[in-house]
Design a protein around this nucleic acid. Structure first.
Lengths: 150, 150
DNA sequence: TGACATGGTTTGCATTACCAACCATTATGA
DNA sequence: TCATAATGGTTGGTAATGCAAACCATGTCA
């Protein structure tokens, strides 16, 4: 059972390392890890508050405040849903999109030294292995919602 | 350059997923991600406040408060360094160690469904690839301090 | 219609995190 | 050697994050 223990160790270590990079890059743009994630999600699609909260494992009140602050910064907007007066749809603004792009570039740049240590074949293998480990592969089935980016 | 982009995507996705698991498991034991990490580090070795702060990329005042609360819970202790009256050494207590073990077990258990999707050969390959990506491999050189677990 | 469920917001609280100012101890150099 | 600087931690102030409970508005259903 040491093999799985090793992989857990490696996954946890890598997680802290990547999370550290993301926190740093985010911080350089005044974005917390969570805000970064929200921006990443809304980059591809809009979402309602509860949906975001459930996806990120946060309380809806937390989500509400998060959106408040991002909206005050002009990164997101709240919109109404014509079919259900209760729901609030959240959209990314052009400014938010632009920031998301910039942050994305920075992240790729920051991780380049790490990923650059792998040759093309290894990169490919790593992507495949991570896709198996992360829920993406097993979740492809119940994709009621369009597969999110983050 | 799409290959590296893909690997960055996969790394970020996996990071959020593993971080989510760690946050959840930690939360079940009233531990934040950072406290979890501190406990993991002090499991193998003691450390001084500034050292921990630097390692985790936090301000020393943040570290101080973090240790305060963990100490109040009986998980850590502060000790003096006989050679330098300024430094404070932080140790894990038996209770803290016990908690760290329990949390570690829970984490392995929580990640088992994910890691279980890989056969032994894949596990081995993933560990090796992650070790290349994460700084461990390249840091093995300047190991002035004993290689930390977390 | 009345009761209940759902989606968000608000309020209050603890934690996390930063910064600046501070104290104590150690190191330096004139 | 003694004043000055540097280092290691703590404290106080502030903002953000996150939860829980109470609340309001809107939908749903018997």
């Amino acid at each position: 059972m040491t093999a799985t223990d090793d992989v857990v160790d490696a996954l946890v270590r890598t997680t802290f390392e990547v999370a550290g990079v993301l926190t740093r890059i985010g911080g350089e743009h005044d974005l917390s890890l969570t805000q970064l994630r929200v921006l990443g999600i809304l980059r591809d699609r809009r979402a309602r508050i509860t949906e975001l909260a459930a996806y990120l494992g946060l309380d809806k009140s937390t989500m509400s405040g998060l959106i408040d602050r991002a909206q005050r910064r002009g990164l997101l907007t709240r919109g109404k849903n014509p079919e259900d007066g209760r729901v609030v749809e959240v959209f990314i603004t052009p400014a938010g999109l632009e920031l998301a792009e910039r942050v994305g570039d920075d992240i790729r740049r920051a991780l380049a030294p790490a990923t650059g240590r792998l040759d093309p074949e290894q990169l490919d293998r790593l992507v495949n292995l991570l896709n198996v480990v992360s829920a993406r592969s097993s979740r492809a089935h119940d994709a009621a919602e369009p597969t999110a980016e983050c």
